[in-house]
């Protein structure tokens, strides 16, 4: 049985319909009307224990809503969710003991209390043995550096500190599943790196199940082994990261800066490498090809032999590129799924 299992999961919000301006307000006062906003539409998802799944999609796609459904905060409009064999909404308290969640843009901690006190309260809420709690504090101090601001009220923490504090708080009770909603939003690069390193460690060493949503595609490559893309409440793609990379992120681009370029058609030089596309951009020769079909050394060797190259540069299309193309509707992963 999978750790998280969603079947035909739906969530629709009710939103008041109100025409703008004064007359709209008055009309709503007299006759309120509502509109259903479908945030999650027949989602089927199954996550095994120990998986790190990345959930991406444009703003408003329904990522946060999905997380709230899986954590039991919201009740589904239709469909079922099972988390560790329980209904997370109906069996909220039991479910809450086994999971943790952080929402990047909003703290789970009490604003007025010093971080240390909040953590101690969580220790007591989850009945964590004293020894394990001390160990957790040590780990968090080592990796997240929270010892520097344990005694400060949460309202005084910087965003980077607050996110680290939130993570430390989420892990006090050693949850089996850690949901992360945009964990790295707004953080500087150093903090992001630190956070990702910690998540990687949690995932690899403790076998924590981590569903996370993000807009920062580096999070995906660093932490996750599986990618789920949703847009407008519907699932667009669900598969392993390697699959996506090998199927859709195969383009490699080599750029050679050439001294005194003759700008002749490079097709002749590159003949025999396989299918490549080559073109001049000023004094730079740009060669693009499928990295699984064409060997880069072969291309490089030919160009170096034929021209006076002063510099060169290699770039691979990453997951970011694939996701961008999906968002822009230029790529349908599900349809092209069968092709190599």
């Amino acid at each position: 049985m999978a750790a998280i299992e969603a079947r035909a999961l739906c969530k629709a919000y009710r939103r008041p319909l109100r025409a703008p301006g004064l007359s709209g307000s008055v009309r709503h006062l007299l006759r309120p009307r509502h509109q259903d906003i479908v945030a999650v539409d027949h989602l089927d998802l199954s996550i095994e224990a120990g998986e790190a799944v990345c959930y991406v999609g444009p703003n408003g796609a329904g990522k946060s809503t999905t997380i709230k459904l899986l954590t039991g905060i919201l009740r589904p409009t239709a469909g079922t969710v099972r988390v560790l064999g329980r209904d997370p909404h109906r069996q909220r308290v039991a479910n809450a003991r086994d999971i943790a969640a952080t929402f990047g843009n909003r703290s789970q901690l009490n604003w007025d209390l010093p971080l240390g006190e909040s953590l101690a309260l969580l220790r007591d809420i989850y009945a964590v043995p004293q020894g394990r709690y001390r160990q957790h504090l040590r780990t968090c101090a080592d990796i997240l550096g929270i010892d520097a601001f344990l005694s400060a009220p949460v309202r005084q923490l910087s965003l980077g500190q607050r996110v680290r504090a939130d993570l430390a708080a989420a892990l006090v009770h050693d949850p089996k599943i850690l949901y992360l909603d945009e964990p790295t939003v707004g953080l500087d690069i150093a903090v992001k790196e630190r956070l990702r390193a910690f998540l990687r460690q949690l995932h690899r060493e403790r076998g924590l199940t981590i569903p996370l949503t993000t807009h920062d595609l580096a999070d995906i490559e660093d932490v996750c082994d599986r990618l789920v893309i949703i847009d407008q409440a519907r699932l667009l793609y669900d598969g392993t990261l390697r699959q996506v990379r090998d199927r859709f992120a195969r383009e490699r681009v080599l750029r050679f800066v050439v001294r005194q370029p003759d700008r002749a058609d490079p097709a002749g030089i590159l003949a025999g490498c396989g299918p490549v596309r080559a073109a001049w951009e000023g004094d730079t020769l740009v060669v693009a090809f499928d990295r699984l079909a064409v060997e880069s050394p072969a291309v490089t060797a030919r160009v170096l032999r034929a021209m006076d190259v002063v510099d060169f540069h290699l770039a691979d299309a990453g997951i970011a590129d694939v996701v961008r193309r999906v968002y822009e509707r230029r790529l349908d992963l599900a349809e092209e799924g069968g092709q190599p």
Binding site: R18, G21, L22, S25, V26, H28, L29, P32
Partner: peptide, 14 residues
């Protein structure tokens, strides 16, 4: 006028 509207917005409230 904005305040007037928001006062009208919640009719139960009002």
């Amino acid at each position: 006028s904005r305040q007037f509207q928001s006062a009208l917005q919640y009719r139960g409230n009002y």
